[in-house]
Nucleic acid binder design. Structure first.
Length: 462
RNA sequence: GGCUCGGUGGCAGAGUGGUUAUGCAGCGGAUUGCAAAUCCGUGUACGUCGGUUCGAUUCCGGCCCGAGCCUCCA
C-alpha cells in the first residue's frame, strides 16, 4: 500500500486516488529562458519516478508538466538577446526535451504552455473578481486579495500576520495589502501583451498553473509536485486561486522534492553555483546522473560532487556485472528482495532502500550463477525489471561496461582490444605468462580491464 | 525575527525502542598461472546535555551546529 508524504498535512498518508485506478498529477516544470540545471533534472527524475511507480502499481496516470513560456525573465533575456521571446522559448523548450530524453525521462502525457492558455487564465481571473477574491488596481494590474481567502498559508504553515510583519512594501505600490499578488500585469510599452477586460497585459506567474491544471485535470486532482522552493509563495497562491475560483478543494497530495546542494548550499541561478545538465553529461553518462539522483530520498537534500557521481558509476558497474552474460528469462517476481523493494517504494518512494534491496538481489544472482548462468537468469530478469521501475539498468550489460568515461579519450577501439585479447589467448594457451601479462598491462594502461573466465576472456573499460 | 527540515561508521546514505542497512573505500580468507570479477568474514556509527524506560541512535525537552522558505528560483 503506497504511502506519500503530504506537505499539506506534514504526514505520510496512504495514497487513495480520487477515482479508483486512475491518478491525476501535475508538476510545475520549467521557465524556459536558459538550459536545465541539475535542480531541474532532479524534479524531472523524481516525478518521472513517481509516474513510473504509479504505473507499475497498475494505475492509469495522467501526468501533466507545464512549461512557463512568458514571464519577466523571459522578456528580459529576449530583450538582451534582441530576439522575439517566442524564439527564445522555442529554443530552450527544445533543449529541455533533449536533456530530459538523455536522462531517460518519460514524456508527460501533456506539456501545456502558459501562452496557449490565455483564455482560461482570463476566465479564472474573471471568476476570482466575481467571487470577491481579486480586484483591478486601476493601473491595469489585477491582484489577488489574500485576506479574502481564509485558508491562506495552510500549505506553507505561515500566517498572514507573520508574513506581513516581514513584508517589504515597494514604493508606488498599488496593492491593497503587501501580500496581494499579481494575477494580471499591465503591459509596459514594447512588452508582449494580450487583450483583456482590464487592458493589455500578461498573466502573473501563479495563475497559469491554476488555470492549466484545472483545465487538464479538473477542479480537484490527486498529486501536485514541484521543487521545495515553490511551496511558498507559488503553490500557496495556486491553492488560493484555484479554491477561490472553483470553491472546491484543489489538490489532495502535495509533493515537494529537496534541493540539489553544492558545498552545503542550495544550487540556484541566483547564487550562480549551478551546473547545467549538458555540462554534467559531458563528464558522466546519463544513467550515472540518474542513479546519483536516486541515491537520496526525494525530500532530502542531494549533495552534488564528483565523488558522488563516481560512486554512482561504481554502483551501476556492480549491477551490470551481475547481469552480464545471463540468458533471457521471465522475471522471477516472487522473491524476498522484490518484496523489500516494493515495500521501500511504497514508503514514500524510498529509493535508497529500494536500491539496497536490489544490491542484495545482485548478490544472490552472483551466488546462484556459480551453479550456472541459467540458474540466475530469472532473478537477473527481475533485477532488470526493478531497475526499469527506477528508470535504470536498461542498457546491455556489456555495452555499459565497455562504454567507459565520456570525458576520457576512447583510446583503443573495440576491434583493437579484441585483437590484443586474441593474441593474449594464444600466448596463454602456450603458457607464455610473460607475454600474456605484457598484453594485460598494455590494455590496463589504456583503461581496459581483462577478466579471464572459464574458456573466455571478458573485458571492460574502467 | 517568524516558519520548516536535518545532524548516523573513512565517504555517500537508509532505518529501527533491545538483533547485519546498502554501495564505495579498508582489512582477512576462498578462488585465480598472475589479475579482475565474485563469494565468505570483518568496523564497540548514531551532534550535545538531561528526561521517560528494564533498555534509546530510535520517544520527549533544552542546547550547539547546518540547510531551506519568508524576494525570482526546481
Amino acid at each position: 500500500m503506497l504511502k506519500i508524504y503530504n506537505d499539506l498535512t506534514r504526514e505520510k498518508e496512504t495514497f487513495v486516488p480520487l477515482q479508483e485506478g486512475k491518478v491525476t498529477m501535475y508538476v510545475c516544470g520549467m521557465t524556459v529562458y536558459d538550459y536545465c540545471h541539475l535542480g531541474h533534472a532532479r524534479v524531472m527524475v523524481v516525478f518521472d519516478l513517481v509516474y513510473r511507480y504509479l504505473k507499475a502499481c497498475g494505475y492509469e496516470v495522467n501526468y501533466i508538466r507545464n512549461i512557463t513560456d512568458i514571464d519577466d525573465k523571459i522578456i528580459k533575456r529576449a530583450n538582451e538577446n534582441g530576439e522575439p521571446f517566442t524564439e527564445l522559448t522555442r529554443r530552450f523548450i527544445e533543449a529541455m526535451h533533449e536533456d530530459s530524453e538523455a536522462l531517460g525521462i518519460l514524456p508527460p502525457d501533456a506539456e501545456p504552455k502558459a501562452t496557449d492558455h490565455i483564455g482560461e487564465i482570463l476566465a479564472m481571473i474573471g471568476r476570482l473578481i466575481e467571487r470577491g477574491h481579486a480586484y483591478a488596481a486601476g493601473n491595469g494590474d489585477v491582484y489577488y486579495d489574500v485576506r479574502s481567502f481564509p485558508g491562506y498559508g495552510k500549505l506553507s504553515g505561515k500566517s498572514i500576520d507573520d508574513l506581513e510583519a516581514g513584508a517589504r512594501v515597494e514604493p508606488g505600490e498599488v496593492k491593497r495589502d503587501p501580500l496581494d499578488f499579481a494575477l494580471w500585469k499591465a503591459a509596459k510599452p514594447e512588452e508582449p501583451a494580450w487583450d483583456s477586460p482590464w487592458g493589455r497585459g500578461r498573466p502573473g506567474w501563479h495563475i497559469e498553473c491554476s488555470a492549466m491544471s484545472t483545465k487538464a485535470l479538473g477542479d480537484t486532482f490527486d498529486i501536485h509536485g514541484g521543487g521545495a522552493d515553490l511551496t511558498f509563495p507559488h503553490h500557496e497562491n495556486e491553492i488560493a486561486q484555484s479554491e477561490g475560483a472553483t470553491g472546491h478543494p484543489f489538490v489532495r497530495y502535495w509533493m515537494h522534492n529537496g534541493f540539489v546542494r553544492i558545498n552545503e548550499e542550495k544550487m540556484s541561478k541566483s547564487l550562480g553555483n549551478f551546473f547545467t545538465v549538458r555540462e554534467i553529461l559531458a563528464r558522466y553518462r546519463p544513467e550515472e546522473v540518474r542513479y546519483f539522483i536516486l541515491t537520496s530520498q526525494y525530500r532530502s537534500p542531494l549533495n552534488y560532487g564528483d565523488e558522488q557521481l563516481d560512486n554512482a558509476r561504481g554502483a551501476l558497474t556492480r549491477f551490470y556485472t551481475a547481469l552480464r552474460g545471463l540468458p533471457e528469462a521471465v522475471p522471477l517476481e516472487a522473491n524476498p528482495y522484490s518484496e523489500r523493494f516494493l515495500a521501500a517504494m511504497d514508503d514514500d518512494f524510498n529509493t535508497p532502500e529500494a536500491l539496497a534491496a536490489m544490491f542484495d538481489l545482485a548478490r544472490e544472482i552472483n551466488r546462484l550463477r556459480k551453479g550456472g548462468e541459467g540458474a540466475a537468469a530469472g532473478l537477473g530478469a527481475e533485477l532488470r525489471r526493478l531497475g526499469g521501475i527506477l528508470g535504470i539498468l536498461r542498457e546491455d550489460p556489456d555495452a555499459f561496461l565497455r562504454g567507459g568515461d565520456p570525458a576520457v579519450d576512447a583510446g583503443l577501439s573495440d576491434a583493437e582490444i579484441e585483437q590484443l585479447i586474441t593474441e593474449r589467448l594464444s600466448a596463454r594457451k602456450d603458457k607464455q605468462w610473460a607475454e600474456a601479462d605484457r598484453i594485460r598491462h598494455v590494455l590496463k594502461k589504456r583503461g581496459v580491464i581483462l577478466e579471464d573466465g572459464a574458456g573466455e576472456t571478458r573485458w571492460r573499460r574502467e
